[in-house]
């Protein structure tokens, strides 16, 4: 499978990555190479093998429904770029 430049633009946009137009071709080639490498796995017969959801063969541990966290807003907001009235401020989102 090889990726074209439109696909590169699209996935860069979805991932919010700024990719310079001049680099598009390089990315398309590199990513296509990675795909080609991974595609070798298709040669393996996986009939009857249940797909893994996680590399560890273990089950999710559950925690009891208890409130264990206290309010640490001041601490968290100290490292935020902008806060006001207890809110985190971000560039205006226009709906």
């Amino acid at each position: 499978m090889s990726l074209d430049q439109d696909t590169i633009r699209r996935i860069a946009r979805l991932a919010r990555l700024g990719v310079d137009e001049s680099e598009n071709e390089t990315y398309a080639r590199s990513l296509s190479d990675i795909f080609a490498f991974v595609e070798q796995l298709n040669a393996v017969d996986t009939t009857g093998i249940e797909p893994m959801a996680h590399p560890l063969d273990a089950r999710q541990r559950l925690r009891p429904d208890e409130v264990t966290e206290s309010n640490q807003r001041d601490k968290f907001q100290k490292i935020a770029p902008r806060v006001e009235a207890g809110l985190y401020l971000v560039p205006r989102v226009i709906e």
Partner: peptide, 15 residues
């Protein structure tokens, strides 16, 4: 929750 009232041109976020 996003609060779109005007915070000096910014959006306020309550998580």
């Amino acid at each position: 929750k996003s609060l779109h009232e005007d915070f000096h041109g910014a959006t306020g976020i309550d998580l």
